[in-house]
Amino acid sequence: MIRYLWFDLGYTLVKTNREEAYQKALERMGVYRSGEEIAIAYHRSDKLFMREYPGVLGKDSRAFLPWYVGTLNYNLRLSLPIEEVLQAHRDIARECPMKWQAYDGAKRTLQHLRSLGYRLGLISNWDESAREVLARNGLDEELDEIVISSEVGVEKPHPDIFRMALDRGGVSASESLYIGDNYYDDVAGSQKIGMHCLLINAYGSLGIEELSYRPVIAGIEDVAAYLGHPGLPLEITG
């Protein structure tokens, strides 16, 4: 029986406005792509890096950004000078800094899951900014335990970070469900110690065609239904 739900952070609970920023950078270079096209290109690029270059996306972006932008442009069917694209992107970032923001409904979803009797935790590969991101979005107050790689000295998919979380939560692996968007960090890592896992992939099988893993959900709003409960109640406004 599942008693404890553990979440990844980036692109599970929070996201940036990177698609909008990249669209503006391209427009400054006289190129147009729709927001949906850019979102799908980012999705494909993320999944490629997760599969082929594990751990890279969590490092200093200066180490991989030109490489990533080349992949992004390939997925957008563009052939542009990388340095010019990067400069346009830097200009946009100075005018409108990108911040990690909670997905719409993320906080309400966590509250709903808590109301159903589940305890909630976080297991994330993140730097020292993780707690600020959580607090700014009001997510920290919905979590019973928070385990961050930069604080504990071990990263997913190493099983020790999952073991630490279970010890802190006082729960067994078989009573836990992990929810994250990176198969190679989240699913492979949590399964090493016997945890159940839900893989988030907003576009069905897109970008993860090489995997036969199931279950896959579109986002955390689907967690309650997966567990056999009603979904998030409609928000009453006005």
Rank of each mutant, 00 (worst) to 15 (best):
residue 3 R to N: 09
residue 5 L to E: 05
residue 8 D to H: 07
residue 8 D to N: 05
residue 8 D to I: 01
residue 11 Y to L: 06
residue 12 T to P: 06
residue 13 L to D: 02
residue 13 L to Q: 02
residue 14 V to Y: 01
residue 16 T to P: 09
residue 16 T to A: 05
residue 17 N to F: 04
residue 18 R to C: 00
residue 22 Y to D: 07
residue 26 L to Q: 08
residue 27 E to M: 14
residue 29 M to E: 00
residue 29 M to I: 06
residue 31 V to W: 09
residue 31 V to T: 14
residue 37 E to G: 10
residue 38 I to W: 06
residue 40 I to A: 02
residue 40 I to K: 15
residue 41 A to V: 04
residue 46 D to I: 11
residue 48 L to G: 00
residue 48 L to I: 13
residue 51 R to E: 14
residue 53 Y to A: 09
residue 54 P to D: 03
residue 55 G to M: 08
residue 57 L to S: 03
residue 64 F to M: 02
residue 70 G to C: 06
residue 72 L to F: 09
residue 72 L to S: 03
residue 72 L to T: 09
residue 83 E to H: 04
residue 84 E to V: 00
residue 84 E to I: 00
residue 84 E to P: 00
residue 85 V to R: 01
residue 87 Q to S: 15
residue 87 Q to C: 01
residue 87 Q to R: 14
residue 89 H to K: 12
residue 90 R to D: 03
residue 91 D to G: 04
residue 96 C to L: 13
residue 101 Q to G: 07
residue 101 Q to E: 15
residue 102 A to V: 03
residue 106 A to L: 10
residue 106 A to T: 10
residue 107 K to F: 00
residue 107 K to V: 15
residue 107 K to Y: 00
residue 108 R to G: 10
residue 113 L to F: 07
residue 114 R to A: 15
residue 115 S to K: 13
residue 117 G to F: 10
residue 118 Y to V: 04
residue 118 Y to L: 11
residue 118 Y to R: 13
residue 118 Y to H: 08
residue 122 L to I: 12
residue 125 N to Y: 03
residue 125 N to R: 04
residue 128 E to S: 14
residue 132 E to N: 14
residue 133 V to K: 07
residue 134 L to M: 02
residue 135 A to D: 14
residue 136 R to H: 08
residue 138 G to K: 01
residue 142 E to R: 11
residue 143 L to D: 08
residue 143 L to C: 11
residue 148 I to R: 01
residue 150 S to W: 08
residue 151 E to H: 11
residue 152 V to H: 08
residue 153 G to W: 11
residue 154 V to M: 04
residue 162 F to M: 12
residue 165 A to T: 14
residue 165 A to I: 08
residue 168 R to K: 15
residue 168 R to D: 03
residue 171 V to A: 02
residue 177 L to Y: 02
residue 177 L to R: 03
residue 178 Y to V: 07
residue 179 I to P: 12
residue 183 Y to D: 01
residue 184 Y to P: 04
residue 184 Y to M: 10
residue 185 D to W: 09
residue 189 G to T: 07
residue 190 S to W: 01
residue 190 S to C: 02
residue 190 S to G: 00
residue 198 L to E: 03
residue 198 L to V: 13
residue 199 L to S: 09
residue 201 N to M: 00
residue 203 Y to R: 07
residue 205 S to M: 13
residue 205 S to K: 15
residue 206 L to V: 15
residue 209 E to L: 07
residue 212 S to K: 15
residue 212 S to I: 03
residue 216 V to P: 12
residue 222 D to K: 15
residue 225 A to H: 05
residue 226 Y to W: 14
residue 227 L to I: 06
residue 227 L to T: 10
residue 237 T to I: 10
